[in-house]
Nucleic acid binder design. Structure first.
Length: 273
RNA sequence: GGGAGUAGCGA
């Protein structure tokens, strides 16, 4: 069963629904009975492919077969609904989970916050944050929570609020991650706030977190939005110095900056390099 | 260190 689950996990990543159900058929032919892990993975596969109907079909089949869903299962359910843009259903699944007396963990809350962010419901995202804190045993936000909140604010154009979340991470001493810092940098690109972006970069260095290509690309993007092409190239240089190889993501950011500043010659030059 | 759920990639 664990082998089939791993196989399913691959299908999920590739968003290959057909493959996923093929795997499911195979294991049934072998006379194996799917367990909670396997159903959860199948639900995740349907979710990543945006098939809400299938998600619930699988979920109900699971119940019918007497397999008890756990928080991982509900996590996949919530995430799947959210990816399909069905926030209402996502919270519905969350409600069912609570009614079954299952205790939500950090991942569940982070998934809910992400769901709110995707739909532009910033207030609701913060409501979820408060809810974490109101649990009998309060659940502390982590770097994923921070990243998801910053993204929600940024997407809604609330840059100041995104920065408040960033400061919250520091104030609460939450251990950051490249992804969280990248989100914070990304927020700066809306306003083209290069200074703040570099300040964040410094903060991150102070925490001994290694920037990667996506991080540097976000930084280049900020400078690009601020129409500071020279800064973009300085960042590219620093990136190489730190032995982070620029790939398509970084060069796309550079191209975007060239485009923003009308520097087509520079863009061509980079392309030829 | 061995199977499942969450965040950085819509100019």
């Amino acid at each position: 069963l664990s082998t089939y689950t791993q196989l399913l996990s691959v299908c999920a990543q590739a968003k290959d629904i057909e493959g996923a159900f093929e795997v499911f058929t195979m294991l049934e032919k072998e006379g194996l009975k799917a367990d909670c892990f396997l159903y959860t993975t199948l639900i995740s596969a349907c979710g990543k492919a945006g098939k809400v109907d299938l998600i619930f079909q699988v979920f109900h089949e699971m119940l019918k077969k007497g397999v008890e869903p756990n928080i991982h299962t509900y996590g996949a359910l919530i995430d799947g609904c959210a990816r399909a843009g069905q926030v209402g259903k996502a919270f519905g699944a969350y409600g069912i989970m609570r009614s079954k007396k299952l205790k939500p963990d950090k991942v569940i809350f982070n998934t809910l916050i992400t769901a709110c962010g995707r739909s532009g419901a910033v207030e609701r995202a913060f409501d979820v944050l408060s809810e974490m804190n109101s649990e009998p045993v309060p659940i502390e936000p982590d770097h994923v929570t921070i990243g998801a909140l910053i993204k929600a604010c940024t997407k809604a154009g609330q840059v100041d609020r995104a920065m408040e979340v960033y400061r919250m991470m520091q104030d609460k001493g939450i251990q950051g991650s490249v992804e969280a810092y990248t989100e914070a940098i990304h927020a700066c690109s809306i306003t083209g706030d290069v200074d703040t972006a570099f300040q964040i970069f410094e903060d991150m260095k102070g925490c001994n977190i290694r920037p990667d290509e996506v991080f540097f690309s976000a930084l280049i993007d900020v400078a690009g939005h601020a129409k500071q092409l020279d800064t973009c190239f300085k960042i590219l240089k620093e990136m190489k110095q730190m032995r982070v190889k620029p790939g398509v993501v970084a060069y796309s950011a550079i191209m975007g900056a060239c485009s923003n500043t009308g520097s087509w010659e520079k863009g061509l030059e980079v392309y030829r390099d």
